[in-house]
Amino acid sequence: ALNRGDKVRIKRTESYWYGDVGTVASVEKSGILYPVIVRFDRVNYNGFSGSASGVNTNNFAENELELVQAAA
Results as ranks from 00 to 15, higher is better:
residue 1 A to K: 13
residue 1 A to L: 13
residue 1 A to V: 13
residue 1 A to D: 07
residue 2 L to C: 08
residue 3 N to A: 12
residue 3 N to D: 06
residue 3 N to Y: 13
residue 3 N to I: 14
residue 4 R to E: 13
residue 5 G to E: 01
residue 5 G to S: 01
residue 5 G to D: 03
residue 6 D to M: 05
residue 6 D to E: 02
residue 6 D to K: 02
residue 7 K to W: 07
residue 7 K to H: 06
residue 8 V to G: 01
residue 8 V to L: 03
residue 8 V to Y: 00
residue 9 R to D: 02
residue 9 R to M: 08
residue 10 I to Q: 01
residue 10 I to N: 03
residue 10 I to P: 02
residue 11 K to N: 08
residue 11 K to I: 12
residue 11 K to R: 10
residue 11 K to F: 05
residue 11 K to T: 10
residue 12 R to D: 06
residue 12 R to Y: 03
residue 12 R to A: 06
residue 13 T to E: 10
residue 13 T to D: 04
residue 14 E to R: 08
residue 15 S to C: 11
residue 15 S to E: 01
residue 15 S to M: 01
residue 15 S to F: 03
residue 15 S to L: 07
residue 15 S to R: 01
residue 16 Y to F: 14
residue 17 W to L: 01
residue 19 G to D: 08
residue 19 G to M: 12
residue 19 G to Q: 09
residue 19 G to L: 10
residue 19 G to K: 06
residue 19 G to H: 04
residue 20 D to S: 07
residue 20 D to Q: 07
residue 20 D to G: 04
residue 20 D to E: 10
residue 21 V to N: 01
residue 21 V to W: 03
residue 21 V to Y: 04
residue 21 V to E: 03
residue 21 V to K: 01
residue 22 G to E: 01
residue 22 G to F: 03
residue 22 G to W: 06
residue 22 G to T: 02
residue 22 G to R: 04
residue 22 G to Q: 02
residue 23 T to M: 07
residue 24 V to M: 01
residue 24 V to D: 00
residue 24 V to H: 01
residue 24 V to F: 03
residue 24 V to N: 00
residue 25 A to Q: 15
residue 25 A to S: 10
residue 26 S to M: 08
residue 26 S to H: 15
residue 26 S to L: 10
residue 26 S to T: 07
residue 28 E to Q: 12
residue 28 E to P: 05
residue 30 S to F: 09
residue 31 G to W: 12
residue 31 G to N: 14
residue 32 I to C: 13
residue 32 I to E: 13
residue 34 Y to F: 12
residue 34 Y to A: 06
residue 34 Y to D: 04
residue 34 Y to H: 12
residue 35 P to V: 13
residue 35 P to R: 13
residue 35 P to D: 06
residue 35 P to A: 11
residue 35 P to G: 09
residue 36 V to W: 04
residue 36 V to F: 12
residue 37 I to A: 07
residue 37 I to P: 00
residue 37 I to L: 15
residue 38 V to C: 04
residue 38 V to W: 00
residue 39 R to A: 08
residue 39 R to D: 03
residue 39 R to H: 07
residue 40 F to K: 00
residue 40 F to M: 03
residue 40 F to G: 00
residue 41 D to S: 10
residue 41 D to W: 09
residue 41 D to T: 13
residue 42 R to N: 07
residue 42 R to F: 04
residue 42 R to K: 11
residue 43 V to T: 09
residue 43 V to W: 15
residue 43 V to K: 07
residue 43 V to D: 07
residue 45 Y to G: 15
residue 45 Y to S: 15
residue 45 Y to R: 11
residue 45 Y to D: 15
residue 45 Y to K: 15
residue 46 N to M: 08
residue 46 N to C: 15
residue 46 N to K: 05
residue 46 N to I: 07
residue 47 G to W: 06
residue 47 G to E: 15
residue 47 G to R: 03
residue 48 F to G: 15
residue 49 S to L: 11
residue 49 S to M: 10
residue 50 G to N: 09
residue 51 S to W: 06
residue 51 S to K: 03
residue 52 A to L: 10
residue 52 A to G: 10
residue 52 A to Q: 13
residue 53 S to T: 13
residue 53 S to P: 10
residue 53 S to Q: 12
residue 53 S to F: 11
residue 54 G to T: 04
residue 54 G to D: 05
residue 54 G to W: 07
residue 55 V to F: 10
residue 55 V to W: 07
residue 55 V to Q: 08
residue 56 N to Y: 11
residue 56 N to G: 04
residue 56 N to Q: 07
residue 57 T to Q: 11
residue 57 T to A: 08
residue 58 N to Q: 15
residue 58 N to S: 15
residue 58 N to E: 15
residue 58 N to R: 06
residue 59 N to L: 05
residue 60 F to K: 02
residue 60 F to W: 01
residue 61 A to S: 10
residue 61 A to Y: 09
residue 61 A to Q: 07
residue 61 A to W: 05
residue 62 E to P: 11
residue 62 E to H: 14
residue 63 N to G: 08
residue 63 N to C: 13
residue 64 E to N: 02
residue 64 E to W: 01
residue 64 E to P: 00
residue 64 E to I: 02
residue 64 E to C: 04
residue 64 E to V: 03
residue 64 E to T: 02
residue 64 E to M: 01
residue 65 L to D: 03
residue 65 L to M: 02
residue 66 E to C: 06
residue 66 E to Y: 05
residue 66 E to W: 04
residue 67 L to R: 05
residue 67 L to Y: 04
residue 68 V to F: 04
residue 69 Q to L: 09
residue 69 Q to N: 09
residue 69 Q to T: 11
residue 70 A to K: 13
residue 71 A to F: 13
residue 71 A to W: 15
residue 71 A to T: 08
residue 71 A to M: 11
residue 72 A to Y: 12
residue 72 A to P: 12
residue 72 A to C: 14
residue 72 A to N: 11
